[in-house]
Amino acid sequence: MPETGDTAADFTAPLANGDIEEFTLSERLEDDAPIVLAFFPGAFTSVCTTEMCAFQDRLASFNDLDATVYGVSRDSPFTLNEFRDQNELEFGLISDYNGEIIDDYGIEMDFADLGVYGVAKRSVFVIDGDGEITYAWVSDDPGVEPDYDEVEAAAEDAA
């Protein structure tokens, strides 16, 4: 699992932003950094919806810091676009449908009692323009949301 000071694992994945585009982390660093990657277990679930809506509520503050927020989950890009639409999210959601990013970041978890495997632990990473992780938060409890003030402060520090 990456920690503060580590280089963020690069990846390419579908970005649901109303359309579906290719997203490569290393290519976005110059224009979008600091980047906030907010991993969540699954679209349309209660805590995940609350979390993504909380990031939406704070989006103006992140924009003021020139920080770019992206949600990341195992959901398909089509599901993520519907999730964006229904919750009026104005930031992109990255589809890690094959679980490769979750694996690279070491944040995989299972809900074995539900038959759901390989989803993301609720996690937030702030990445600066050099690709360095300047903030890392990972929860083993899927019901716990990040400290949004702390994430915002980390994005400000990385700007």
Rank of each mutant, 00 (worst) to 15 (best):
K121S: 13
I94F: 05
G115P: 02
K121E: 11
L114T: 08
D103N: 10
M109A: 01
G92Q: 00
Y117I: 08
F111K: 03
L114E: 15
R122V: 14
I102P: 07
K121Q: 12
Y97Q: 08
R122H: 13
I107T: 03
D104W: 03
E108R: 12
D103L: 08
G106H: 03
F111H: 14
V119H: 14
V116T: 11
G115H: 12
G106Q: 04
L93H: 01
N98T: 14
G92W: 09
G106M: 02
E100P: 01
E100S: 13
V119D: 07
G92I: 07
D113R: 08
A120Y: 10
G106W: 01
S95I: 05
L114F: 15
I101L: 02
K121W: 07
F111S: 06
D103E: 14
Y117D: 05
Y105A: 00
I102G: 10
M109Y: 12
D104Q: 09
R122M: 08
Y117T: 11
Y97W: 14
E100T: 11
I102L: 05
Y105V: 00
F111M: 12
M109H: 05
D113E: 15
I107H: 06
G118Q: 03
L114I: 01
D96Y: 00
Y97K: 00
D103R: 15
L93C: 09
I102N: 12
V116M: 13
R122Y: 07
I102S: 10
D96L: 04
D113G: 07
D110K: 03
K121I: 06
M109E: 06
S95H: 01
G99I: 13
V116A: 12
E108K: 09
M109Q: 12
L93R: 00
G92P: 07
I107Q: 05
I107M: 03
K121D: 06
I94D: 08
S95R: 08
I102V: 13
D96F: 02
I94M: 01
V119Q: 12
D96K: 02
I94K: 03
L114C: 14
G99S: 03
G118V: 04
I101N: 04
E108F: 04
N98R: 11
L93M: 09
K121V: 06
D103M: 07
D113W: 14
D113C: 12
V116H: 07
F111T: 05
D96V: 02
Y97S: 10
N98D: 15
E108L: 08
G115R: 00
D113A: 11
S95M: 02
E100Y: 14
G115T: 09
R122A: 09
G99R: 00
E100Q: 10
A112W: 01
D103V: 12
E100N: 13
E100W: 14
D110R: 09
D110P: 11
I94E: 01
I102H: 10
N98Q: 13
G106F: 00
A120P: 07
N98L: 15
E108T: 12
D103Y: 09
G115N: 04
V119Y: 13
G115S: 08
I102C: 04
Y105H: 06
D104R: 11
V116G: 01
A120G: 11
I107A: 03
K121M: 08
A112M: 05
D113M: 11
D96C: 04
G118S: 03
D104Y: 05
V119R: 11
G99M: 02
I102R: 05
E108W: 08
Y105R: 00
S95Y: 02
M109F: 15
Y97C: 04
D113S: 15
Y117F: 15
V119C: 09
F111W: 11
G106P: 04
I94Q: 05
L93Q: 00
